Structure formats: C-alpha cells, structure tokens
Amino acid sequence: MTERVIDEPTADEPSPPRGRRGLGVGLLAVLLAAVLAGHRAVPNVHGFGSLLDSATPLLGLGVPLLALAALLRRSRWALAAVLVPAVVWAALYGGDWIPPAAGAGPAAVRVASQNLRSGNPDPAATVDALAGSGADLIALQEVDDDGRIDAALGARYPHRATVSTVALWSRWPIRDSTGVDTGLGWTRALRAVVAAPDGDLVVYVVHLGSARAGHTATRDETLAALAATVRDDHAPRLVVLGDLNTATTDRVFVPLTRLLHDAQTDAGQGFGFTWPSTVPVTRPDHVLYRGLTPTSAGVLRTPESDHRAVTAGFRW
C-alpha cells in the first residue's frame, strides 16, 4: 500500500499577502463615497441621474454593510476606507437627524397635505385623520367626486377651493382661487388666497406630472412650470403643498429650492419619507414656504392611502 504524503507548509514559505485582503471592500467604499459626493454629476439620461439623486439618502445603508464585510475580511485598512463614505453621508444628511433649532413659539397656521389615492375606498377616514392633526388648512390631491369628504370635513372646514382633482379645505375664508397651468394639458394645481387671522396667505395645492424609471420628462416640465409661476408671484407669504413627484435631493428640484424653503428640512427631523405608506423610501410630498417661520414639520400615517401625509406649522 502506498502512503499518501501531504505537504505541510514550512516556516520559510510566504503567507498569503495581507495587503489584498479586503481590497474589494475598500474599492466599493471609495466608489460609494464618490457616488454620494458627486451624484449630480451623473448624466441625467432617461431620468437615471434624477432617480439616483432621489435615492442618494438611502445609499447610507451601504456603510454598515461594507463595515461588516471589512470585519469579516479582518481588514483594518478596508474598515478605514469605509469611514470615507460614512463621513460623506454624515456631512450631506446627518444634519437632518439633529433636532431643529427653529420652532420656538406657537404656530399661527398649521397645514397638512395628502395624496388621497384615486379610488380610495374610505376617503372620509383619511381626511378625518388629517383633521385630527389640528391642521387649519388641508390640501388634497387625487380627489374623486365623493361626497364623503364633504361630510367628513365640511363642519370643521367651511371654506373650500377645488380644481379638477386637487382641493384646499380651510377654517378661514378663501378670498380668491384659480387654477394653475403646469403644462400637463389639464389643470391639476390651484392658487388660493386664504384670509388667515394674521393676514393673507397664498396657498398653492399642486399635483405635478408623474415620473417613472426612464420617463421623467413630463414631471420635469411641470416642475419647471411651477417654479416659473412661483417666481412671478410676489405674495409676501406663500406656501406650496402637494405631491411634486420628486425628492428635494433631485437636481430638477433646484429651481424651486432657489425660491422656497423646505419645512421638513428647516423644522422637521429625519428624511420625512412618505411613499409608499407601508415602508416609505422617498419623499414626493412637500410643504414649501417663504415669508413665514416654521415651528414644526412632520409626517402622518393615514388610513387607506398609499402616501403618508405631510404636516407643518408656521408663525408670522
């Protein structure tokens, strides 16, 4: 019988090179940092850049995954490399999780905005939750011709403005309202002047064009049209409420952010994601403003809608 001899490594033989251990993890960490820092430099071909912009806050989830991979590879330098995207993400979005300094004093006006979902089986339950938040103004999108909303809100909000599938319900008189053309081919936005106790407040209720992967042109055009309308509106106090079908991190949002402030950024905590309502991963719903001081901002989960509602409080 022939014995099988297994060669044992000797002390003189070189061990596997440690310098390459964790190389892939380190390269992925550098790539993640580059995408986080330069996502707006990615060409917006077929809306891909826009989609990447909107998803960028979620890329922070890659940091703990890469850190775990570095630990499993027992690579110190790979773990150090993971610190780079961690620092970049924290610089970009860490401030969103710090309790806001704004907010001193009671709110003079409280607003809420909700995409009801067309075909909502119980819109009364949805809007009742909005009224329960204490809002003075309720903006609705995807409103069907349904008397159940009237029955739920009419007694508490006696003033209403409606254009197509968007509506504004108010505790205070509405002096004037008109449809706003955003280039959709049909009117899906309105402008109202609300006679609030401390003075007139101009309120836009907006539902911009839809965006799908590879198809964002209509949304982009409607957002540009809204920005142009707001730019020409010289009202000293103004809020925009609605489903704008994009996140504030999207590059196409810049024309609006140059004109208006974001209540969630200034007075909220966290990203304030609203869609889908079960496990939200982005924020197409917004409260934008100028000429006011935000006291609070947040998100409200309501029944029967595929969006969560957005809320905010302001003082003059």
Rank of each mutant, 00 (worst) to 15 (best):
P294W: 08
F273R: 10
P236Q: 07
G209I: 09
W172K: 05
Q264Y: 05
T302F: 06
Q141K: 06
A124L: 08
V194F: 02
V202Y: 01
R290T: 12
L256N: 01
L66G: 01
L288Q: 07
W77G: 02
W89K: 02
V310P: 02
L32I: 06
W89R: 02
I98D: 03
L208G: 04
W316R: 13
P280S: 07
S75L: 01
L28G: 06
L260C: 04
N120F: 10
G62F: 01
S113L: 09
D144G: 14
D250H: 02
D150Y: 07
Y289W: 06
E142D: 13
R283C: 10
V143R: 00
T295I: 04
R110T: 14
E142L: 07
T282R: 09
L27T: 06
E3D: 12
S133A: 11
E142F: 05
V310E: 03
S75F: 00
Q269L: 12
A224M: 11
T293V: 12
Y204E: 02
Y204M: 03
G270A: 12
P57Q: 10
R18E: 14
I98Q: 06
A29S: 13
G268V: 11
V203I: 04
P14C: 08
A104C: 06
D232T: 12
D233A: 13
L92V: 00
D285E: 07
A86G: 03
G47Q: 13
T187M: 12
V5F: 12
P14Q: 05
L288N: 05
N115Y: 10
R308Y: 07
S305F: 05
A151L: 06
D53Q: 10
L168M: 08
G298N: 03
D220Q: 14
S296Y: 05
A91P: 04
L71T: 00
A112F: 01
A125F: 08
L23N: 05
D12G: 10
D12S: 14
D96N: 11
E8H: 12
R231T: 15
G209R: 04
A41K: 04
R74A: 01
D243T: 09
V166A: 10
L31W: 06
A34R: 05
T218I: 15
T229P: 01
G119S: 09
L58T: 00
D7F: 13
L27P: 04
P17W: 09
Y289F: 13
F253A: 14
L244G: 10
L223E: 11
A90N: 02
N44Q: 10
L58D: 01
D243G: 08
H159T: 07
A217H: 09
A247H: 13
P121R: 14
D128R: 15
L244P: 08
